[in-house]
Amino acid sequence: MRYLSLIASRLLKAVLVLLAILILNFFLIHLAPGDPAMVMAGEAGATDAQFIADLRERFGLDQSLPMQLWHYLAGVLTLDFGYSYRQQMPVLDLILERLPATLLLTGAAFVISLGCGIVAGMLAAMRAKRPSGSLIMGLALLFYATPLYWVAMMAVLVFSVFLGWLPAYGYDTVGSDATGLAHALDVAEHLILPATTLGLFFMAVYTRMTRASMLSVAQQDFVKTARAKGLAPGMIQRRHILRNALLPIITLAGLQAGQMVGGAVLTETVFAWPGIGRLMYEALMQRDYNLLLGIFFFCALLVILFNMLTDVIYRLADPRIKEAA
């Protein structure tokens, strides 16, 4: 019962956030240079007055702003995100077509960055005073300071151009008609570079955070208690320090996972990865505002989903919250 009401309240909150994003979206469309009808007409490549007037009426642009907002929201409720004249397709179809590739990329990058980040942070904390610990932190700082897209380009330069180990761009080999496992392996090969380069920055974030968190937990009284019990250092690290240190990492991971979707724009652009990030770049190049804002909405939606997910994980990990409920 408690869980039901918890889930209900979370959903309500998510819906409110989405509503706010839609309203923001609506006003951003109106901020866009020029009359939306002109913009749309421009996108459609037509400029005659009759066509523009038709557009005006069709999209209710001759109505008052609140009415327009209402139409916009009603449209979204029926999953109508507008039409992209440039691509000659409904926005929703375009996004849904590209979404799986982005989910695959960000999912892989998330797992890589979180896994490696936590392990590296742990090692760095345990070797805080040794050169190996400093080396890990030095690398983390380096990746933290490197532009995402530049790392991607350098990776292409080294691993594709100079070494020729991995494909430089795309989702799978063009013209290959491999199916099943062979196709999956092909995709996986194409995934390695984009996922790793997207993950590197976030890995640096998690490494730094895990280390700082572990060092601060190590100062706490219960760690001294564990030592007074005669527990071996390894056990203290794993059971007492790491578990407590991971709590803030979970929260951070939720926030970052969402930001990763935004960061994917850069990675997908460099690697020509056919996801919504690449689509966003295309929309940008063509000043296709309907599509741009539709993608923006889906990015926000993904962030909210990630946040809800980490919220659940946090609840499982920290007994104090369950009881407080």
């Binding site: 706490q220 009284d221 219960f222 564990a226 007074a228 005669g230 007492h240 578990r243 920290d318 007994p319």
Partner: peptide, 24 residues
């Protein structure tokens, strides 16, 4: 020394609120 700790010498600390692992 570790083998003695807990087994032959026990210790109790000042702050009961923080001396136990909150997640265990």
């Amino acid at each position: 020394h570790r083998a003695l700790r807990g087994r032959r010498i026990g210790m109790v600390f000042q702050e009961p609120m923080t001396a136990l692992n909150p997640l265990m």
